[in-house]
């Protein structure tokens, strides 16, 4: 377990699935998070996903919990490349009471600390929809910078939206101080 001031990162548990399904049935979460259609998830889908991550020895997936142990969101790696020591990541806060209060920033900082200072990665990348200003603010606060704009990649709400490519290097992260930004939240 990775311990922060207000949240921890821990392994997913089967009991989290009930909450994950609830959070990912919320359009405020799915509209900001998925490139695919917002079909509401079922617990069967999540069971399958859970069994996948339990078997997965190539990627890393964590639950974000509050200090009472409640699952409030998650974060995971995608396309981790050991040769180039890079990865893409995704992170979300699903519980509505924990959004826009700095919990995501704190979780992301803990996750980056793990990726850079335990796994030894050089660079962490992510994509974020241009209308998701809450997430963009969080990423900038954690030291991510813009690598470019994938123009008109997402069709949502009747029109096309840009998808921003952002990244942070281990040097940039460690220069800022490992957990500095959680105090700003």
């Amino acid at each position: 377990m990775f311990i922060g001031e207000r949240i921890n990162l821990r392994a997913m548990k089967r009991e989290d699935i009930e909450y994950a399904v609830r959070y990912q049935s919320d359009l405020d979460v799915t509209n900001n998070y998925f490139m695919s259609l917002n079909l509401f998830p079922t617990s069967d889908m999540w069971d399958k996903w859970y069994e996948g991550i339990a078997e997965d020895d190539k990627g890393f997936s964590f639950a974000i919990e509050n200090k009472g142990g409640l699952y409030i969101g998650g974060c995971h790696t995608m396309w981790l490349n050991w040769k180039n020591r890079t990865t893409y990541i995704a992170i979300y806060i699903g519980h509505p009471d924990y959004r826009s209060k700095g919990y995501g920033t704190e979780a992301l900082t803990l996750f980056l600390d793990f990726l850079f200072n335990e796994l030894g990665l050089r660079k962490v990348k992510l994509n974020v929809f241009s209308f998701n200003s809450r997430a963009i603010r969080c990423y900038e606060k954690c030291g991510f910078s813009l690598d470019g704009i994938n123009r008109e990649e997402l069709f949502r709400g009747g029109r096309y939206h840009d998808n921003l490519a952002m990244s942070i290097t281990s040097e940039a992260f460690n220069e800022r101080g490992r957990c500095g930004c959680s105090k700003e939240a």
Partner: peptide, 20 residues
């Protein structure tokens, strides 16, 4: 060119940019 992933790919001991 939409995105430049700076110093992304290791070749001959140094990292090259990867362009999208």
């Amino acid at each position: 060119t939409e995105v430049v992933h700076r110093a992304e790919v290791l070749k001959h001991g140094r990292y090259l940019d990867l362009l999208e």
